[in-house]
Write a protein that binds this DNA or RNA. Structure first.
Length: 210
DNA sequence: TCGCTGATCATCT
DNA sequence: GATGATCAGCGAA
């Protein structure tokens, strides 16, 4: 923690993640998430995230109080929350706030900065490097995270998931969250201005009934 | 490049 | 029984 580097660097990772997701999310931009496996390591520099809070946030998995799935969001911070989406994709969050208060930051997009070859084998459909981790399910897939990693502890140096913050991510933009149909007025999506890996904005649409 | 659609199942009402 | 923090593939422009 050098002098003059801002408040973010002065906080320990635990203190950093103990705050509300809305505060953590924009400062997570530029950070690198690194996942080590038997196949190798993949590192992704985050360019887009979304904040989800607790019972005060209807769009959050924790919006109706703890359920078997969302219980992790009410647990201690620094834990990875991985959930199964649309019957086929995994999406990853970083849990925030002290135990008992729910909050999480959804990892929406990033740039692969380590292990690109391994990421490509996991994402054969990607047409270009920027497509490797463009979108929450793609990002999670490129990193090799699945439900087996649900509950993994970022604060454990011996664990296989690590987070390295970056004090200077560049200009940060914010806007409405993607793919939700509740609380769409909250500008809790944050991204690095101009980053090519930022996913396209799509409003949440309810599927028409058959 | 844009827009639409099918795939597919855990979770919650 | 309906919904959803999505993606890939396709056809049209």
């Amino acid at each position: 923690m050098g002098a003059g580097r801002g408040r973010r660097s002065a906080l320990t990772l635990l203190e950093f993640l103990s705050r509300p997701a809305v505060q953590v999310a924009p400062e997570l931009l530029g950070a690198t998430l690194r996942v080590v496996s038997l196949e190798g390591a993949v590192g992704v520099r985050l360019t887009e995230v979304e904040a989800y809070e607790g019972i005060e946030d209807p769009a959050s998995h924790a919006g109706r109080g703890p359920t078997p799935r969302s219980a992790l969001m009410f647990g201690p911070p620094g834990v990875v929350y991985v959930y199964f989406s649309y019957g086929m994709h995994w999406c990853a969050n970083v849990v925030c706030r002290p135990e008992g208060r729910a909050g999480a930051v959804l990892l929406r997009a990033g740039e692969v900065v380590e292990g690109e070859e391994l990421a490509r084998t996991r994402r054969p459909a990607a047409r270009s490097a920027r497509d490797l981790a463009r979108g929450p399910a793609r990002l999670t897939s490129a990193l090799g995270l699945t439900g087996l990693d649900n509950g993994a502890d970022l604060l454990d140096p011996a664990g296989r998931v690590h987070l390295r913050r970056d004090p200077s991510p560049g200009a940060v933009c914010s806007g409405p969250r993607v793919g939700i149909s509740l609380a769409t007025d909250r500008p809790w999506r944050f991204w690095v201005d101009g980053a090519p890996s930022v996913s396209a904005f799509r409003p949440g649409v309810r599927r028409a009934r058959a």
